[in-house]
Design a protein around this nucleic acid. Structure first.
Length: 490
RNA sequence: GGUCGGAUGGCCGAGUGGCUAGGCACGGGUCUGCAAAACCCUUUACACCGGUUCGAAUCCGGUUCCGACCUCCA
């Protein structure tokens, strides 16, 4: 129960394990980042937010974290027909831009999104296009070791050769025979180049129309989808590092193939812990372009989308995500988002109220509460449980303020220290409601509050209500209490 | 067809054998000039069918439904 160590679910072992870094206090994390060919959508939010909590918590625990999140700017093939287009190239033709312009444009969009969500920047953010040499070098090693072969200017990973020494499918639980059986259901072009349908491309020959291509020992071409992550994680985190993260949709074939490439190349599994977050659904349905329910992240902030009843702030969206455990699917709906918004406001208001609290006698136990919060985090980053405990503290804070609960000085000090720690430092929620100090606007509001109080004592309720309503129209809400009137800005 | 993950009260979501989270919404109350905020009370759920057990949302077997992935698709 009160396990003092972080436990994390490892997809590789299918068990929750105690997190033990390979070389403490250093921790290496590699997170699969986006392919930058479009505006970030709702599905892009969960990964960065989830792993930001992990990053922040490990930093809080005192680890020296190297956080690597790649940007994929080498397009991958658009569809099975393999007509030579790739995602970035295709988008480039549509927008009449250079492929690199597309990648740059949407990298900015991605960063802007992360910034608004208060996600800590990655320590290293390598681009696939900047690591062609490393990828080629890794492919050469794989060929030397007999785990890859060239065919018509392309290079493929030889799954059956690999399977003689290792187990392809250890991560996703698939076995090669079943993969073969499944593949017979589909007919793909370009398969004749491969020795087996299970084999996947490490390097793909580019035809003459292909813009994004690089010279290689096998001619002009571009790297396969999986090799970039193997090459870049190895370069920046070493042959073995602590945590490799990504969405569950990447489990197969991407991460499976990454393991195979790295193992074939270096002889060992690249990451000790494989951590996967689950997907987001919209009104119970998956997000897909064909269903026309892919909401862009910027649409949430403007409310400009048919599925959105109103705008939702970045912190609203983030809090909504954190109220679910990262390994479960999360269903989006307007109702759920609005519920999260109300809850978040209560949480932030209580955090501000906390600063005004005065101690009295021994009462509410802050240390017991604090331990429960840590236990929740240690239990596979159980943010919904942590948030439930935070609301217990909210209740305590409000009760203390109302004189219905008491707290002594040391418990109050602990609460004042740890409540903001969990809310802002670890969950990374920003205190947007906190009125900034030394601000003329705040002084003016205080002046109006004073005038309203005067009107109230004179029983001039028409005037006092007008002040309240006019301020409300400006997005400033007044809250009366026995101690006086406070305000919050929307 | 295969692999993996789900099905919890009006909504969202925790919870792996008894103590039956949390948020939001609803209803009642306290406070208030009124309202808001705050506080108190309230609403007892676990897809279905069997089984194990003194006792199951939680374990076992079966069924139904849903989602992701199944080779260049992030």
């Amino acid at each position: 129960m009160s396990s003092s160590k972080l436990n994390i679910y490892n997809t590789l072992t299918r068990k929750t394990e105690v997190f033990e870094p390979i070389a403490a206090p250093f921790v290496g994390i590699y997170l699969c980042g986006p392919t930058v060919y479009g505006e970030p959508h709702l599905g892009h939010v969960r990964g960065p937010v989830t792993f930001d909590i992990l990053n922040r918590y490990l930093l809080h625990l005192g680890y020296k974290v190297r956080f690597v999140r790649n940007i994929t700017d080498v397009g991958h093939l658009t569809d099975d027909s393999d007509d030579g287009d790739d995602k970035i190239l295709k988008k480039a033709i549509l927008e009449k831009l250079e492929p690199m312009e597309i990648a740059q444009k949407y990298t900015y969009s991605y960063h802007s999104m992360l910034n608004s969500l208060n996600v800590l920047p990655a320590g290293i953010e390598p681009r696939a296009s900047g690591h062609i040499i490393e990828q080629i070098s890794m492919i050469e090693t794989l060929i030397e070791k007999g785990y890859a072969y060239e065919s018509h200017g392309s290079v493929y990973f030889d799954v059956s050769a690999y399977s003689k020494n290792y187990q392809y499918g250890e991560l996703s639980g698939r076995i090669t025979e079943e993969l073969l059986a499944g593949s017979s259901r589909r007919t793909l072009e370009g398969q004749e180049e491969k020795r087996s349908p299970n084999d996947f491309a490490l390097w793909k020959k580019a035809d003459k129309n292909h813009i994004m291509k690089w010279p290689s020992p096998w001619g002009e071409g571009f790297p396969g989808w999986h090799i970039e992550c193997s090459a870049m994680s190895k370069k920046y985190l070493g042959e073995q590092f602590d945590i490799h993260g990504g969405g569950m949709d990447l489990l197969f074939p991407h991460h499976e193939s990454e393991i195979a490439q790295s193992k074939g190349c270096t002889g060992h599994t690249p990451a000790k812990y494989w951590v996967h977050h689950n997907m987001i659904t919209i009104n119970g349905q998956k997000m897909a372009k064909s269903l026309n329910n892919g909401i862009l992240v910027k649409d949430f902030f403007t409310g400009n989308h048919p599925l959105l009843e109103r705008a939702y702030s970045p912190m609203n969206l983030k809090f909504f995500i954190l109220q679910a455990h990262y390994r479960g699917t999360l269903d989006f709906s307007n109702e759920a988002l609005q519920a999260a918004d109300k809850g978040l406001e209560r949480l932030i208001t209580a955090m501000n109220t906390l600063q005004e609290l005065k101690p009295s006698r021994k009462g509410w136990n802050a240390d017991l509460w604090k331990q429960k919060c840590y236990d929740a985090l240690n239990d596979d980053l159980n943010t919904p449980i942590l948030i439930a405990h935070l609301f217990d503290a909210v209740k305590a804070i409000n009760s203390i303020k109302a004189g219905l609960e008491i707290i002594d000085e040391s418990d109050l000090d602990s609460l004042k220290k740890h409540f903001p720690l969990f809310v802002t430092d670890i969950l990374g929620l920003q205190n947007t409601a906190m009125p900034s100090a030394n601000n003329k606007e705040n002084e003016l509001i205080e002046l109006l509050i004073h005038l309203r109080a005067k009107a109230k004592t004179e029983k001039n309720y028409a005037l006092s209500d007008e002040i309240r309503n006019q301020l409300s129209n400006l997005g400033i809400e007044l809250k009366d209490s026995k101690e006086g009137t406070t305000f919050s800005k929307k």
